[in-house]
Design a binder for these strands. Structure first.
Lengths: 133, 133
DNA sequence: TAACGTTTGTTATAATATAACATTTTATAA
DNA sequence: TTATAAAATGTTATATTATAACAAACGTTA
């Protein structure tokens, strides 16, 4: 069986590469700007790559910021349980990897008995740097 | 002291009213459509009201849907701990009120020691109705 | 090699949200 | 009461984010 990454198409590779190299979350149109030299011309080409990368778990969307960030779990193949820490001052975003938290949320049941397949959690506050300013 | 609700301005009241009467989350431009008879003409007037209503906790934004929903807690004055259940089929959204969950998340500490002021959690799955189809 | 699913390229447009500025209203407190 | 500060309004223009629709090419595999 071939490694997932190698199955990525040209555009998907280009987009993933940009997101992985970025220090923080990246906006779709900022990606578009960066790749216009590389043969990608239209928003849709970026959004299609993003959709695919999200689907296979290589990246996540930070919903409150309309931005995209690489998944920090090596070989992550799914993206159904995400948690982020977001600094409200500098906008630094970090994916939270915490098995207690994910275990708790994966097994969470509300009063309706609805069974959840997926969750996304975003925490907001001040990071160490910004707190001490 | 006067009740919070009575401090709302005309536009804020109009917008809140629409959201509270709606059966589910409402989009900003759908609100705009509804109120063009009532003297609100521009997107900004709606967004400003939305911002204020969010700030005082009367409504929440469902980030993954870019939509707004009334807070179900009577006299809720803050909006720093929200959790929603979202059906991926019918798009029904319900606010989850669960003190165990909120207690757990409010006291959550990640490895960086960052202290969180606010969180937003969105669960996705199929509601009872859609599951049985 | 044909058939299918996926990806691409392209143009156009929809949907969501904010900037900037002038004015009016409301609350506060001197 | 009045001045003054803070909040809200109205308006035009524009920025930002995202999808529709269609034709063509590519890649896999039966």
């Amino acid at each position: 069986m071939v490694h997932k990454l190698e199955n990525l198409s040209k555009n998907q590779q280009i987009v993933l590469n940009i997101i992985e190299k970025a220090k923080g979350p990246v906006k779709a149109y900022s990606i578009l700007n960066d790749v216009q030299k590389k043969g990608i011309n239209a928003p849709l080409q970026v959004y299609r790559a993003l959709d695919k990368l999200i689907k296979i778990g290589k990246i996540h969307k930070v919903e409150s910021r309309n931005a995209f960030i690489a998944c920090k779990n090596t070989n992550c193949e799914v993206s159904n349980a995400t948690a982020f820490s977001i600094c409200q001052a500098c906008e630094k975003v970090t994916e939270i990897v915490n098995s207690k938290l994910s275990k708790y949320l994966k097994s969470f049941q509300d009063s309706t008995g609805m069974k959840y397949k997926k969750y996304n959690l975003e925490f907001f506050g001040l990071c160490q740097k910004c707190k001490s300013k």
